[in-house]
């Protein structure tokens, strides 16, 4: 997938496990303005499903992309409202 967005903030939750990646992602997106993008770096393999599920269920956020880079799971979330 090509990157047609700019990452505004990066959240590093490497080494943390459920539910912290989701809880901290939520906290970090609260601090963003509309249109800004948060990158989340996690090592919890459950975060792929969890952050996707969270983004789908939660108003005002949109999951742009998820990728696996070695041991790191990267998630890109845009604030939409």
């Amino acid at each position: 997938m090509s990157t047609e967005y700019t990452v505004t903030e990066t959240l590093d939750v490497q080494g943390e496990s459920c539910p912290m990646p989701v809880v901290k992602t939520k906290g970090a997106t609260d601090d963003l303005s509309e249109g800004e993008v948060l990158a989340v770096l996690a090592t919890d393999s459950g975060s792929m499903s969890d952050i996707a599920g969270w983004a789908e269920t939660t108003d005002g956020v949109e999951l742009l992309e998820q990728e696996e880079d070695g041991d790191v799971f990267k998630h890109y979330v845009r604030k939409t409202e």
Partner: peptide, 11 residues
């Protein structure tokens, strides 16, 4: 606690 904190993150 895990379900509660996650649900809160869902709003």
């Amino acid at each position: 606690l895990i379900l509660a904190s996650t649900a809160a993150a869902f709003g």
